[in-house]
Amino acid sequence: MAATQSEIPTAPAAAPAANPLFPLVLQLADTSLILAHRLSEWCGHGPVLEQDLALANIALDLLGEARSYYQYAAELEGQGRTEDDLAYLRSAVEYRNPLLVEQPNGDFAHTIVRQFLFDNFHYHLLKELQSGPDARLAAIAEKSVKEAAYHLKWSSEWLIRLGDGTPESRQHLDKAIATLWRFAGELTTPTALETNLQELGLLPEYAALLPAMQAHAAHVLAEATVPLPAAPFAQQGGKSGRHSEHLGYLLAELQYLQRTYPGLTW
C-alpha cells in the first residue's frame, strides 16, 4: 500500500520532563538485583553449609534493597510501570549496573573478591546517602547500610583468610584479584548522569568516598599479606548500558518466568 504523507508517524509529543533521580535509582536497583542474582546462584553449592547460608543471606539483603529502589523508581517514572516491569521486562542494554556485579561467580575466592570490591563501595556510598537531601533514598540507605556493614565485614574477613591461609587459597585469591580488580574503577568513576546528580547535590562525590575505601582496602590487603594491586586500566561501560556477554545469560535465567508467562504471580 502506498503510504501517503499523513501516514508517516510523527515524533511523539515531548514526554514530561523526567525526574533526574529516576535513572540513578534504577542504576542502584539494577546493581543490587544483578549481584543478588549472582549470589543466589550459589544456593545449594556453597563450599560449606554455613557459607551457603551466608551467601543466601547477602543475596536476600541485596534483593530487598533492590525492591525498595525499583518501587521508588516506578513512582519517580510515573508511567504506570511496576517494580516487576522494571526488574523483569527490560533488555540487557537498558540495565545500568556496573560490569563488576555481572561477572560470573567463578570459585569461592572469585566471589569473595567481587563481593569485597562491591561492599567496600556500597557501604561507603550508603553511609553518605543516608544523610542525603532525598528523604526516600536516605531512608532506603539507612536501612541498607547496616546490612552492607555486615557484608563488608564478611567479605573482608574471608579475603584475609584466603590471602593468609594456605598456598592453595592464596593462589585462588591472587587469580581472582588479577581478574577482577580492573572492574573496581567503574564504581567510583562518575558517568555524565552521576556527575549531573553530584552537581545537583543528590549524589555524594565519589572522590570524597575514595580515601575511606582505599584505607579499608589497604588495611584488609595488608592483613591478608597481599600486596596492593597496581591500579589497572578501569574496565567500564556497564553504567552506560554496555555490558559484558555475561549479563545476557544472567537475564535469560532471571527473566525467563515473566517472559514465558507474562503477568504470572504467586
Binding site: L49, E50, Q51, L53, A54, N57, Y150, K153, W154, E157
Partner: peptide, 11 residues
C-alpha cells in the same frame, strides 16, 4: 572462634 560467631549469626 571469630568465624564460628559469624557463622552462628548467619545460620
Amino acid at each position: 572462634a571469630a568465624m564460628a560467631v559469624q557463622n552462628a549469626r548467619d545460620v
